[in-house]
Simulated scan of single mutants.
Amino acid sequence: MTTQDNPATLKGLVLCGGHSTRMQEDKSNIAYHGMPQWQYLVSLLQSFLPEVYISCRPEQVPGFSAYPNLVPDNVPFGGPSAGLLSAHALQPATAWLVLACDLPLLSKQSLELLIRSRNTTTAATTFVSPVNQLPEPLIAIWEPAGLAMLQENVTAGKNCPRKTMLSTTITLLENPYATEQFNANTPEEKAEVLSNLRL
C-alpha cells in the first residue's frame, strides 16, 4: 500500500458503462448543465486532475470518439466493478477518483473536500451516503491496494464495490454538501433535478 509520503498518482475516471435501464435513456448524455453529463463531470475532474478517463462498454466507444482517454471494459463481467477493474488493469499503480455518471448535483466543493481529505494509507477515501449511511463507492478515491482487493473479491464471485469497502479499512467522510451525492436514476428524478436547477 502507498503511504502519505509516497502516494500513487491520482487520475479521474467517469463511469459511463451502465445500461441506464430505469432512466430509459443514457444517463451519461443527459444535459443537466447545457452539455452531456459525462462532459460536465470530466470538466469538474479536470479542475483538479491533469488526466481524466471515461469508462464505457466496448460498444459505446464510437459515441465517445471525440474524447481521447477511454477505458473500454475488458473484463468478463458487468456492473461498476468492470469499469474500476478495467482502469486498474490498464494502470495498476494509479489511484482513481471515480464518479458515477448519474450525479447531476455534484460540484467542485465536494470534489475539493474529497481530494483534500485523501488518505493514501487506507484502501479508499469516500463519503457517507446520506441515504443509508454506508460508504459511497462511486464518489470515491480508490487506492491501488483497494482495487487489488476488489479484484480478489470479484474473482471470488463478490462483485460489489461497496462490500469491498465494508470489508477493509477506508477513510469515511461526512460531506457538508451531501445533497450533491444525489443519484438521478429515473425520469421522475431527472425531471426533479432539472426543475430545481432552473430555480
Rank of each mutant, 00 (worst) to 15 (best):
M1Y: 00
T2P: 10
T3P: 00
D5M: 11
D5N: 15
N6V: 12
P7G: 09
A8T: 02
K11V: 11
L13Q: 01
L15Q: 05
L15N: 03
L15W: 08
C16I: 04
C16H: 06
R22F: 02
M23L: 15
M23E: 04
N29E: 13
N29H: 15
N29K: 11
Y32A: 02
M35D: 02
M35A: 14
P36W: 08
V42N: 01
V42D: 01
V42C: 06
S43G: 07
S47F: 00
S47D: 09
L49P: 00
L49D: 07
P50Y: 04
E51A: 02
C56I: 01
R57F: 00
R57H: 12
P58M: 09
P58W: 06
E59T: 08
P62N: 08
S65R: 12
A66V: 05
L70Q: 04
V71W: 00
V71A: 06
F77G: 06
G79D: 10
G79K: 09
P80K: 10
A89T: 12
P92S: 15
A93G: 14
A95K: 04
A95H: 02
W96C: 02
L97P: 03
P104R: 02
L106H: 06
K108V: 12
S110M: 09
L111A: 06
L111D: 01
E112R: 10
I115K: 03
R116H: 15
R116Q: 15
R118C: 13
T122C: 06
T125N: 06
F127C: 01
V128C: 08
P130H: 05
V131T: 15
N132E: 12
Q133F: 11
Q133K: 13
L138F: 09
L138T: 03
L138K: 05
I139T: 09
I141T: 07
I141P: 04
I141W: 04
A145H: 11
A145S: 13
G146Q: 00
G146T: 03
A148W: 09
A148Q: 12
T155F: 05
K158E: 12
N159V: 12
P161I: 01
R162A: 09
R162Q: 14
K163T: 14
K163H: 14
T164Q: 01
M165E: 06
L166K: 07
S167Q: 12
T168C: 13
T168V: 11
T168Q: 10
T169I: 11
I170N: 04
T171S: 12
L172F: 10
L173F: 05
L173V: 07
E174G: 09
E174C: 09
T179I: 08
N183Q: 14
N183R: 13
A184P: 01
T186F: 03
E189P: 00
A191C: 07
L194W: 03
L194R: 10
L194D: 03
S195I: 05
S195D: 11
S195Q: 14
N196C: 00
N196H: 14
N196G: 08
L197K: 11
L197A: 06
L197S: 09
L199Q: 15
